[in-house]
Design a protein around this nucleic acid. Structure first.
Lengths: 403, 403
DNA sequence: GGATTATTTCTCGACAGTCGAGAAAATCAG
DNA sequence: CTGATTTTCTCGACTGTCGAGAAATAATCC
């Protein structure tokens, strides 16, 4: 069932367009906005006047000099128009950041997760307190925060309005509903996303900004204790569509052994750190996986693999194979697209590559279209943060345009 | 990059809305259109007047009688406004159908595909000739045909404007570009879709029509000599989005043996008719697959499986397992959705079911959300045809609205 | 220094579209 | 024939976009 359209929707769409252009370029003049959006000059006047009246954009202090005619006046988003809180939950630490509406970082602190006291209710309290602390440190009130963007590894409720964590390596299948946690007191929109989804979002935004590269789709794979996948595709209306399929716990092969999710044969059970560890030490594959593998331990296995140790090399090869087969299956179901590999596991990419290429090359589609481009991207943390901002600010912009 | 909006686009969208409503209900009065679309009465007047002037809709002859006040005048799409040609290519026969703009069948004939003379150029000639014949029999000119909708099993170019068959069981990897074939002489829009995609389209349209069932997504799987998958999902703007992932040639397990696509371990190599045959007769799995398996042959294997013959039962079980694992992987990458099984292979569903359920139940997601609903749908041929019409008429409608 | 030129922003009227309200049309009941 | 009822049609108000040209303003030319 399609939905009806109206002139107000037109204005919303075009306002959003102006905001998006302004966000990309930081500040633009009247004529530049017109050129970037394709809107007529008169329309730009109307929209900027409205946004200025609403306090969302302002004429920039510093005006550009030099041209011949009437000097251009630059519009820019008002930084103090609202604030965004970004929360990154990882297995050992939780990072809280505050940015303004322009996306510049104002404050940040981390709290290490105590490994003993698991349990969601304890964490919920810590979480809410940390947000309050963030406000106090910057002397802000709750209603100035327009969005709280949270990320974790794991499975997230796809329903757009919910912010429920369905399964995560940190909390297991104890569900956690962040929207409910902040429900009455906070007006902010609460969003929860898979970490690797945000990486894909950031990479896609970057690709879109690049000169006419003609971005269509891409996938981000994060290697570490667990395996994450984010897929970004350009939708029919030019918008970037991002999903976080359940790649790490997709079935690879029963031989991969017991996964910490409780199933047998997940990709993660072969390619996650604990899977590699288990294979390298020839632990029976139905052993309950290690809760946590120090990176030093992994480095040791990698070193011995590089020195020619047979089982260590085999473990990485099997991990690569699981990833390669998974990628092959993923591409069968979507389409050919470039793959970006991130996460702590990239430091072993030399050891994984052989198995990975072998695993990828076993399908009709890849024979027809050639193997996908696979590249390693290093700064996962920055990408996750960029993805947070990209999403949160985008949502805020579209809410402003809708109002 | 989003795209700008304008008042003309609003009219396009709303015209399309009116056409869609009219197509669903055959004929509707002014007030009914208003209720169905949510548009104001005055707007409906403007749009219907325009469409009537363009010759796309007309006031129906037969008016409904009985009420008290002014009698309602029913609008209905004009059948003679244009025509659609539907071509279904299957391995043994090609079916050509002609329908009017209302979707009623006017003419149909079949031509059996000669199994010896493969080769696309010969087929191209036959194809073009058949289309001409269809026109002559109904005394139509080429320019009265607004769409030619073609279906085949296999891989289709995803690019929306192209109509290129990339790989098919019928022509192998000899590509065939139908749009180019009809390029200068025909004004009709040429579309080519995977057969199972059309099944999914038809099922989704049906689900959408049904009372508030809240359709979100579904998958159709076709079992036969080859294995097809169509996935239909409701997009962000209420439109139905359909894709035909390359499911049959997704990697299952190396043990599945040689597939006729040339790769090893495809789902089809285990679950396609020739795969089942091969396993039942204990032919080595790297044997080059049979080009064609008569259904009688399959029936014999099924009969002996039902009588307890070990290898025959095993073959079907392995086929079910391959399908189940594939479904599990597919659902990992998309989301939980109901599965509809069609095609000639459904007559062996009792034999496949055990393996299928076992194969499906091996994943985290399915343990969290429960197994998907799987149901058998019998009349695949009708669904394919319905899907053709659904798509072709939809495209025509949106082109009319755009004009 | 004053006129000219180039450039940007702003404003006005035309045009397209939707909407609500009420007039007009057409039928039925009494 | 009259009034009630229901549906369709029309009119004016409102919102939005667009093109053209007026207004603003700084650099340049003489």
């Amino acid at each position: 069932m399609l939905t009806k359209s109206s002139t107000e929707l037109v204005r919303q769409q075009n306002s959003a367009l102006v905001l998006a252009a302004l966000r990309r370029a930081r500040n633009l003049s009247h004529t530049e906005i017109s050129a970037a959006t394709g809107l007529a000059s008169a329309t730009v006047s109307a929209i900027t006047a409205e946004l200025e009246r609403a306090g969302v954009i302002a004429k920039a202090e510093q005006q550009v000099q030099g041209g011949r005619g009437r000097p251009r006046v630059l519009f820019t988003p008002r930084r103090d128009c609202g604030y965004v809180i970004v929360v990154r939950i990882s297995s050992d630490v939780v990072q809280y950041s505050l940015t303004d509406y322009g996306g510049t970082l104002l404050d940040r602190f981390e709290e290490s997760r105590n490994h003993d006291q698991r349990g969601t209710s304890a964490f919920a309290q810590i979480f809410v307190d940390a947000l309050e602390r963030l406000l106090q440190r910057s002397r802000l009130t709750r209603d100035r925060v327009l969005a709280v963007s949270i990320s974790s590894k794991g499975l997230v409720d796809v329903d757009n309005d919910a912010a429920r964590l369905l399964w995560s390596p940190v909390f297991g299948s104890e569900q956690l509903d962040f929207a409910a946690l902040l429900a009455p007191e906070w007006r902010a929109k609460v969003m929860l996303n898979n970490e690797t989804l945000l990486v894909a979002q950031a990479l896609a935004a970057e690709a879109e900004r690049a000169p006419e590269a003609g971005f269509r789709s891409l996938a981000a794979i994060s290697l570490g204790h667990s395996i994450g996948l984010g897929v970004a595709r350009k939708g029919r209306f030019g918008e970037i569509d991002v999903t976080a399929p359940n790649f790490g716990h997709m079935l690879h092969a029963p031989s991969a052994g017991l996964c910490r999710c409780g199933a047998y044969g997940c990709i993660e059970a072969a390619a996650g750190f604990y899977g590699i560890l288990r294979a390298a030490f020839e632990v029976p594959p139905d052993t309950i996986p290690a809760k946590f593998v120090p990176i030093a331990e992994m480095d040791k296995i990698a070193a011995s693999a590089r020195q020619g140790h047979r089982m260590a090399g085999y473990a990485f090869r099997q991990a690569g194979l699981a990833l390669g087969n998974g990628i092959s299956r993923m591409l069968s179901l979507y389409e050919r697209m470039p793959i970006y590999v991130t996460g702590p596991g990239t430091r072993y990419f030399d050891l994984l590559q052989g198995g990975l290429m072998e695993g990828v090359s076993q399908s009709l589609q890849l024979r027809l279209q050639g193997p996908p481009e696979i590249s390693v991207v290093l700064d996962e943390q920055r990408l996750v943060f960029d993805g947070h901002l990209e999403r949160a600010l985008g949502v805020i912009d579209s809410e402003i345009a809708t109002a």
